[in-house]
């Protein structure tokens, strides 16, 4: 029974962290349920907790090989392989929208709240169709 270390703080932290990943995954599922691409969704992400959440629910097919994916969810620009740089990307940080040309949408924190934005011209350029249900989150350009 090595280090059960019931430091309640850590338990609470871990519990809260699980909730955070689950909530983020649920939001992304909702977004992707309202967009369509020419190919089936096969998701690769450098956010491993997110992939675990998708795998738990089996909503989407996921892959550990970036080049097999049809959609990338990116947290850190350094983690994307060059062979995947032409695939559609949904980013987890607003600044990545500026840095990753193939990115068409983002979920990010601003003013202490999570936000969603989808850049319509970029989605259109990659033949991604956005449902009207996401109209509230559509922008024409990056701020």
């Amino acid at each position: 029974m090595k280090a059960v270390i019931g430091v309640l703080f850590l338990i609470v932290l871990a519990f809260a962290s699980d909730h955070t990943h689950a909530a983020k995954a649920e939001i992304l599922e909702k977004i992707f349920a309202n967009i369509s691409m020419k190919k089936e969704f096969i998701i690769w992400s450098d956010d491993k907790e997110l992939i675990e959440e998708f795998d738990k629910k089996r909503t989407f097919t996921t892959t550990t090989i970036c080049k097999d994916a049809t959609l990338i969810i990116l947290e850190n620009k350094k983690n994307i392989d060059k062979t995947c740089s032409e695939k559609p990307v949904f980013v987890l940080d607003y600044t990545l929208l500026k840095e990753v040309p193939q990115s068409f949408g983002a979920i990010f924190w601003k003013k202490g709240r999570p936000n969603i934005v989808i850049i319509a011209p970029r989605a259109k350029a990659q033949s991604i169709i956005i449902s009207d249900k996401l109209n509230d989150y559509i922008e024409d350009k990056i701020w």
Binding site: F9, V12, L13, A16, A23, E26, I27, R113
Partner: peptide, 22 residues
């Protein structure tokens, strides 16, 4: 989606990382 964003915000509140019940 707005309700889900609120739940995500709530789950990610920073006090979860700083409060110490002890």
């Amino acid at each position: 989606l707005n309700e889900l964003l609120s739940e995500y915000r709530e789950a990610g509140e920073l006090f979860n990382e700083t409060k110490e019940l002890k």
